[in-house]
Design a protein around this nucleic acid. Structure first.
Lengths: 194, 194, 194, 194
DNA sequence: GATGAATGAGTTTTCATTCAT
DNA sequence: TATGAATGAAAACTCATTCAT
């Protein structure tokens, strides 16, 4: 028990360090040295937990995606209106925006060179990531809404991410409640049309 | 004249090659060898036109941003309704989506390590990139629209990019007319509210 | 006693494992991990019995050389003719060929880098290894044979080893009786000359 | 012309350095750094001429085997008796003994881990290496000699190599003429039997 | 101006050895 | 005594940059 817990702790420490370094520098520019230093372990230790830099990266994606998907679907289950859906989406995507964004970017560049088994693991992740939003929209949109739920999900998420990114870029504070209200104002009329 | 033109031609060839390689592999993973091969010149020649890999990258961003901003503001000047605005935006962002997306991603990862003078040049680019959409919205949105034009611009552009990215990811054809109609259906009611 | 025996057992297990790994991969490419796994003990345990990888290797050479020399001199003592000498030599060298060959090769590569005390131990081994064949030839060769026994020993052993190696390389079965007859046919006339 | 020659010179320098280092240390223990230092070039330069340490090793084997086979078959063509055959064999194998021996040893350990294409190249070498001696013996042995030429070749070569190795090991001078006479004395009677 | 061979600092990965339990 | 997680020095290989031709 004790032993197993310690192993999990160290694994988590390494993943936290990896997240920081990968999201700051991108996959290729990130150095295993930096990850080890950040985690406070020796370089060799990384390889006791992950078989390569690529495998560490994919494991990190899996871990974070899992957490995010769990949280998101938990919250969205209790959304009973499109307004609630928008507010919940803004709150969660906004909080996790920066690191998820950076990881996602790294993915599109780096993964094409990965070995087949790792590519497959990433592929599975992408599908898992879309599911909760798609499910909630399927439930909340008016019957016979002419735009398919996956496309609507893309619009909502894109709008959220870009507004948050804009705030960060311009150095404005990210007030998620205000952002949610702005989004509601723009999107709700269109999404509520019978 | 003749001489000057030749110089410009070679410069352009190198930039075209750099675009292909940077957008395919990302900044760090891109190799000067590949860029030279793709451009059909020797590696040393790259350094006659650009003083480093970083400077080549920033020059490319400047070149492409300039082109894109010129085209976009040209088209948006003639937009006389929000509907037209949406259709024009989808058409242009959609066409340029992939390469702009990749360049933008590379920017966020790589630029923080660049020397200060190059960072300044990138900073100026980002502002230039937002201007045309902001100007058009300021003109087309209803008086006293409660959401600021830069935020609306972010929502529209985010929605466009994510829908296009979703099509590409799922292997569906990217039919820009259809996408524009979907976006109009979702966004226009909110944007037209008095 | 009991305790002492257990210690010897574990030592032997480690040496057996080391033999398998060293002869399969060569000294440098052999990993202490593999030896520990093969022996069924933890890596740290190896260092309770042998102070380093190098010392383990030399101890193995000593152990195996001792066994081989004992067996060989026991058999050769009862050889009463050059024909018997050849048959016995083929039988024993043939059986032990592969592992001895590999250990010997490792020796010539690796030992030059060893510390002086280990080099000295290896040096002693080499001399011990030649003695039984030299003694038997001194007894069995005709009086005043013009070629010195050590050189004859080298010829016989070289001929045996290369024929066996040739069979192995070409994938032919190693039939030691046939090989002994071939060697007798070629060597006996010369060795029997008065 | 000039250019091509310079390239060949540098390639040769690297191969010479590689031979020295590989034969001194064995394949695994040899370091690319050492080879580069010995050749008087930078580490990166090695990779302009050979794509990996393994490929450098196999290229070296090919180069040296080719030289040796050419020389050997040239000389053996003019051997008109078994006595001449023995003298020629001793002279050539003796001269090249040390380095060929060491390279051959490295082969048996290292090559099994090489990629398939390199293994194939080594396999071809081994066959080429046996041909000249086999051809000469087929010509010179008595009709209906009961031992197959490849086996006789193995005996002769093994005897030569071990006698030479014995001299080196005991610190005696290697006088090839004397060694050839000793071998003739022992082997010729057996090989000449009708 | 143009070339491309050469460089060497920087990166990932391995593995003998140690030491707290 | 036995363990095996942790270490970090060392090795293969890469690639931006330079410079003699």
């Amino acid at each position: 028990m004790k032993n197993e817990d310690l192993v999990q702790d160290k694994r988590r420490e390494i993943l936290d360090a990896a997240e920081l370094v990968f999201t700051t520098r991108g996959f290729t520019a990130a150095r295993m040295d930096d990850i080890a230093d950040t985690a406070g372990v020796a370089k060799g230790t990384l390889y006791l937990y992950f078989s390569s830099k690529q495998e560490l990266f994919v494991s990190l994606l899996e871990e974070r995606t899992q957490e995010y998907v769990n949280t998101l679907s938990g919250w969205l289950e209790h959304a009973h209106s499109l307004s609630e859906f928008i507010h919940i989406s803004v709150k969660l995507r906004g909080q996790l925006f920066v690191k998820n964004q950076r990881l996602a970017e790294s993915m599109s560049h780096s993964v094409p060179d990965f070995p087949k088994d790792l590519q497959r693991r990433v592929w599975d992740l992408r599908r898992a990531l879309e599911q909760p939003t798609k499910d909630a929209l399927a439930r909340l949109l008016p019957r016979d809404f002419p735009v398919a739920p996956p496309k609507v999900a893309a619009m909502v998420n894109g709008a959220i991410d870009y507004v948050v990114a804009g705030c960060i870029f311009h150095g404005e504070p990210v007030v998620l409640n205000d952002i949610a209200q702005d989004l509601e104002y723009v999107l709700l009329p269109g999404l509520s049309q019978g």
